[in-house]
Structure formats: C-alpha cells, structure tokens
Amino acid sequence: MKPFDYARAQDVSGALDAGKIIAGGTNLLDLMKLGVETPERVVDITRLDLKRIEDHEGGLRIGALVSNSDLAVDDRVRRNYEVLSRALLSGASGQLRNMATTGGNLLQRTRCYYFQDVASPCNKREPGSGCRAKGGATRLHAILGASEHCIATHPSDMAVAMQALDASVEIEGAEGTRTVPLAEFYVLPGDRPDIETVLKPGELITAVILPAPLPGRQTYRKVRDRASYAFALVSVAGIVSVKDGVIEQAALAFGGVAPRPWRNLEVETALAGREPTRETFDAAADILLAGAEGQGGNDFKIPLLRRTFRAVLGELTQGA
C-alpha cells in the first residue's frame, strides 16, 4: 500500500474534490493492498451525517453511509423491497455487510483476476495496456455488454436489486446536487473500461432514492460456486405482478453477467400482458440473451442465465 495522507471530512462540502473517498473501506483497502488503487490522499467520510434511511415520496431515501446490514434489516426494506434485502443478505459476509456502505457498494470494482493482478495488463486499471482476461481464465466474466477492451463483470448484488427497483443516485458536486437514475449511472466499457460511472472527479454520492414499491412479488436469486460467501455467477432480481392470469408488469435485473447491473426493458415489454408460460419466459429470455457471447470459461452462463431467469419468473408468477 502506497503511503497516503489521511484526512477526515467534517461535512459533505469538505469531502468534495478532497481525495479518494473511504467509507467502509472493504473494497478500497483490499485494492490498495494489491497496488491496484494508489491514492495520494484518502478522505474518511464515515463521520458524515449520511446514515439515515428516510421516507421519501412514497419510497425511501437511503444515506450513502447506511451500511449494507442496516439497509438489509430495515423494516421498510424487508416489507416493501424484499428484493433489495435479499440481495444485500446474499452478498459477502456478516462482517463485510457491517462495514460496507450503500455508496461504496455501488462503486465496487470488478473481481476480474487480471484487474486485481498488477502484473497483468488491464485496460480498466491502465487504459491502453490490453486485456489479459481475454484468452485467460474467464469464469467470472461477462456475457453481455462487454467490449473487446474489457470483459469484466460488476460484482454487486445490491446494485442489481436497485436497478430492478428503478433507484436513483443522489450526487453532490461543486456545482450542487444532481440525481441520476441508476439506469444511467453506470456506463459500458467500450474503449474506456476505466470509466465505470458518470460520477465526475470530486463528486460524492450522498444517497440512493428508491421510488414507491412496485406491486407484485419480489425475489433475488443468486447462483454461485459455494452455498454462501461467494460472488454471483448469475443473479436475477425480479419484481413481477400478475393480474387475471397475465403478467401485468415485470422489472428484472441481472448480476454476474455484464460490466454493470444489467437491465433490458425489452425483456420486460415482452413479458407484459402475456400469460406466465414457459413459452413466454423463453421468448423473453431470447431477447435477454440476444447477442450474449461467452469467452470459453463462462459459456455456461448463457444457459444458466436462461434457466435461472425462467425459474425466477416461474416462482414469481406461480399461483398468482
């Protein structure tokens, strides 16, 4: 870990443009120890008043420093946003959830083996150096949204649920506050995989806004290599309502398969107004997987995503 100056922010304005932000530290310190992150100055924001979960326009406003644990166990979240609670509880471990924050989790970096290994070229770590993952070990890697420059996946569970929930990100910057829908917050790698979000240098995430809960059933299904404490190979966040035997509305997001929490509104359109049958699910899965491309070691994610997608839809529509 490179030496750095440590400072503690006393208020939000003091954290803007002040250096690398540290909150829970669970991802940043991990990467600093590996030499992947090498900040000159680290700004501790843990004492800022961003730890509240407040009712907000029928939904919730979640402070950026609310821990993953506190968010997962909040009564309102458990009652109205089950998909989010389950996503959070499926992530990491009890210890890590106690430290990790809402804002930090959104900005989690990829688990790509080559990104974490400073001896390997990586366009995300060092733009223009190349992608060593291509042609290497790709079990963790993307089947959707990747580019020739980067095939890494976003590792968050929480962000996948928030994507399905139409969350927005509240951002504080020198020019004031702006709110960005999560759908527009993440950017695909293209030829600049080092740029992962629309967050500008010096800006700070202060909150996540959840709109009023959608009707219907919710679930988060995570498929992984161990029963617990492992990153998703594939995950599906789903909120589906059924009325008179047809799907009224479906909101679906996918983890472990793309450089960002993945959502495809055409998939949801294909489901709406249809009977919840295997044919309907398969037709929607065809849309979801159109253009999906494996790298060899992750080819299995294509059938796995289809099967998990169908199972989640089956579960959410069964008997409804």
Binding site: Y113, G135, G136, A137, R226, A227, S228, Y229, A230
Partner: peptide, 28 residues
C-alpha cells in the same frame, strides 16, 4: 468447489486468494 486455476499462457495461478479459491464455508 476447489480448483487452482492456472493461466494456460504463462502457468500462473489465477485464483490465488480465498475469495476465488473456494474452500467450503460453513453452509457448504
């Protein structure tokens, strides 16, 4: 779950940590 993955191009161990070399956890 357990498998040391060697990169077939240079032989290095790719999953050289306890997040990706999967020892069984309690729930397994």
């Amino acid at each position: 779950t357990e498998e040391l993955m060697h990169d077939s191009r240079d032989g290095h161990i790719v999953n050289r940590d306890l997040a990706e070399y999967h020892l069984p956890v309690n729930l397994d």
